[in-house]
Amino acid sequence: MPVAGVDIGSLSTEVVILEKGKILAGIIVSTGANSKVAAEKAMQMALEKSGLARDNLQYIIATGYGRVSAPFAHEKVTEITCHGRGAFSLDSGVRTVIDIGGQDSKVIRLNSRGKVVDFVMNEKCAAGTGRFLEVMAHALEMDLAEMSRLAPLARKTVTISSMCTVFAESEVVSLIAEGYPREEIVKGIITSIVERTVSMANRVGVEGTLMMTGGVAKNAAIVKALQESLGIKITVPQEPQVVGALGAALLAEEGLEKKEG
């Protein structure tokens, strides 16, 4: 019985279709202005790829910010539980999950059965989230991929001493004006977001295998810096972006089993 998990984030939307634990399709599209449209589009693409019709899907769970307004979901589960579940299914040694999301960053602690036992999320302000990276990238007039590419080229790190996004943005602007090389500023920004995340991770405590999920996990420079700062190796799954949707799909299978009892 095929089921689906849909993760509708502020930046991208993912769909995973699953049958008996096997992934039939995994799709990533950008969310754009309308999350409903993006969800429909991603679902359509996933169905095409798996050769299924909408009616074949027995259970659908939506997660992420758009979950509340997801058009076709049978159930809504937060990305905290889904990322935890998804990460644990990929590696049962995972006890800590880090996800730097667009609006929210989170550190999730799992027990030996993969159940969430504690989590922390960023405080109200955007410092330490994907949004922070975006604002900084904008100030530097480059995209996130370019940031990742530039960072290793830096010989030194400029310290971004401001803690809040608003202060930090003007600090970056003045660093540019003072003629600091862009790669050094990029490295400074990355250090700043990494240290933020580490401070959050320390609040719940890091244990067991640490997996990083979400789009930011594709940014090698950030993962590397995070590893160095935490002093432990970070596992990054092949497709970190779909972990949330995968978790949702796995929960859908469980939900289906329960329903059919």
Partner: peptide, 12 residues
Amino acid sequence: QVQTRIDGFLEM
């Protein structure tokens, strides 16, 4: 943001 945190907490 508030709802996500509450939902996540109750799921936990």
